[in-house]
Structures are given as structure tokens and as C-alpha cells.
Amino acid sequence: MADTALTATAPKTAGATASREAILRRMRGGDRVFHSVTLSAAIMVLVVLGGGIAALIFGAWPAIQTFGFGFLTSHAWNPVTEQFGAIAPIYGTVVTAAIAMIVAVPLGLMIALFLTDLCPMWARRPIGIAIELLAGIPSIIYGIWGLFVFAPFLQGTVQPLLIDLFGNVPLLSDLFAGPPYGIGVLTAGLILAIMVLPLVTSISRDVFETVPPVLKEAAYGIGCTTWEVFRHVVLPYTRVGVVGGVMLGLGRALGETMAVTFVIGNAHRISTSILAPGTTISATIANEFTEAVGDIYTASLILLALILFVITFIVLAISRYLLMRVERRIG
């Protein structure tokens, strides 16, 4: 009887083993398919990125051959004589982005602190939604509002005040010199600050909410003020996320096109005054690409696009390096 039971059990055990092996083979096959799909997606991103870089280099090659490194240092921009230089658009791009970040980052951090620690509970959600809605407004709307509302306001109130206030101050008198045009580098930078502010605020608020309450309660317990808690507890704990949000905002400020095109004045020159009109790389491309006649003109605009790509890549690389240093210091 025992031999009969063992004989009957053996086929069942063998069948269960075979079933488990079939399931494992099917799971391994699914894993291999999933691995292949994800690997293909990652490779596709690199292929598209490499293809974009190659297309920019190929399109800009006539300008590279004609102007060489001098393209980066020349002030000229004359389609009639086909003399082009990138220093004015590069200067405008960097200065407007710097103004935007100088204004948006402190405001964004303070708003995020207010929403997480100081704002009444009933008001947090409406204010947070209102700030996030700013990020959904199309950039052309910001440009139209800036041209017809914000620029006249600056021209009639803020810019004359800055000119009178800093007119006799060394260095600052040059920075805020000239007639109040309304449009100009300062106006474009402030518009960019308004556009970047929701991004910096939203990311900062999200990372501030991850701070364990016990850390803040301990700081308050030893007599720290709200500012001291923010400076010595919240910011150190969330600096990786804050740096990431700031760099994302900077990336948008560098590449913004339509809003800047409306209010910067589109003048291919460098002025020490931020009240004067200027231009950016993206604004120059948007304004002139459809009117570009001739290989050199078109290639010069594509070379500007390549320079903007390189600037953005450098900014992102620096941000990754900073994040790596912060993460290494943390742990």
C-alpha cells in the first residue's frame, strides 16, 4: 500500500515541478522582454539627442567655417553684408535669466515657506492652486500682458524711479542709465521671473513638506525662531530638491521665447544699462528664421540654436554636479 501511494504521488510531484519551471520560464521571458523594451527606450533617447546635435552641427557648419570662433565674440549682426556675431544674444540670454532667478528664487522660497509653515490651513489650498495656475498660462499671454500692461507701468513709474535713485551712484548709474523705454532687458527678466516663480514655488513647497515635523518641533523647543528653523533645519534637509527646482527654473528662463520676444526690444547690441533694449538667442531665432535668406544667414541662426543647446547642457551639468556634491555631503 505504501509503495502504491508513493507511486501515485510521484507523478503529481513531477507535474508540480514542471508547472513551476514553466511559470519561471514565462516570468524570465517577460523580464527579458521588459528589459529589452526599457533598454530600447533609453537608447532611443540618446539617438534622438545625438541626431539633434548632429543636425544642428550640420546646419550650422557654413557659419562655423565662415566665422569660426569669432562668431562668439563679434557684435555684428547685418544680414545685408552677411556679417553675424552671437555675443549680443548670448549676453541678453544670460542677463535676463540671471535677473529672473535673482527675483524668483527668494520669492519662491519665501512663498513655499509661508504655505508650509505660516499660512492658515483654510488658505493653503487656494493660494497653492493660484500659484500653480500661473505655470499653465501660455507664454504668449505673458508676452502680450508684458507689452501692453507691464512695460507701460515700468516706463511710467519704476524705471524713472530707478534712474533718479541711482543716477549719482557709481556703477549703478550705468546699470540703470538711459531713458525709460518700458521694454528692455529688465522688463524681460521680470517677466521671466513671473513665469519661473510657480515652478520654483511648487517644487520647494513639495520638498519642504517632506521635512519630518519632529525636527522642526525640536528646533522650536530649544527656542529657535521661524527664520532660524527655516535656515538651519528646513533648507539643509531639502537642499537637494531646492537646487533641482532652481535649476529647472533656470532651464526654462534660458529657453523662453515668445514672452521675451514681446518685451525685450529685439536690438542686437550690448548695453551696460539693463533698462535698454536687447535680444536673446531664442528671440533672435524666432524673429528672423522665417526671413533668413541665404545659407550663411540661416546657418548663423542654427549656430545660435547650437550655442543655446550648449549653454543649457552646461547649466544642467553644473546642477548635476552640485546635486552630487550635496548628496555626498549628506551621506
Rank of each mutant, 00 (worst) to 15 (best):
A2G: 15
T4G: 01
T7M: 10
T7G: 05
T9H: 12
P11Q: 10
K12T: 10
G15Y: 08
A18T: 05
A22W: 10
G30M: 09
G30K: 10
D31E: 12
R32E: 13
T38Y: 05
L39C: 00
S40E: 06
A41Y: 03
L49I: 07
G50A: 12
G51D: 03
G51T: 01
G52D: 03
A54Q: 07
L56M: 13
L56Y: 10
A60N: 07
W61T: 00
W61V: 00
W61R: 10
A63S: 15
F67K: 14
L72D: 05
A76C: 00
A76P: 08
V80I: 08
G85N: 01
A88L: 06
T93Q: 03
T93M: 02
A98Y: 11
I102M: 12
A104V: 07
P106M: 13
L107K: 00
G108K: 05
L109Y: 09
A112Y: 02
F114T: 04
M121Q: 14
I131Q: 00
L133Y: 12
A135W: 12
A135C: 07
G136F: 04
I141G: 01
I141R: 02
F150H: 09
P152S: 08
P152A: 09
L154V: 13
Q159W: 02
I163M: 06
G167H: 02
P170M: 01
L175F: 15
F176K: 08
A177V: 11
P179W: 08
G184S: 10
G184D: 07
L186H: 09
L190I: 13
L192F: 06
L192V: 06
I194F: 06
M195Q: 02
L197A: 03
P198L: 13
L199Q: 02
V200Y: 08
S204C: 04
R205F: 08
R205V: 05
E209W: 14
P213N: 14
L215C: 05
L215N: 06
A218L: 05
A218M: 04
G221T: 02
I222S: 10
G223H: 12
R231K: 15
L235Y: 07
V240W: 00
G241F: 07
M247I: 15
G249Q: 01
L250R: 01
G251F: 03
E256W: 02
A259Y: 06
V260G: 05
V263W: 04
V263K: 07
A267L: 10
R269V: 12
I270K: 14
S271A: 11
S273A: 09
L275E: 04
P277F: 04
T280R: 06
I281F: 11
T284D: 04
T290S: 09
E291R: 10
E291T: 12
I296N: 04
Y297G: 04
L301T: 12
L301Y: 13
I302F: 14
I302L: 15
L303A: 15
L303G: 13
L303T: 08
A305R: 07
L306A: 14
L308A: 09
F309M: 14
F313P: 10
I314T: 15
A317I: 01
R320V: 04
Y321G: 15
L323F: 00
E327A: 13
I330V: 06
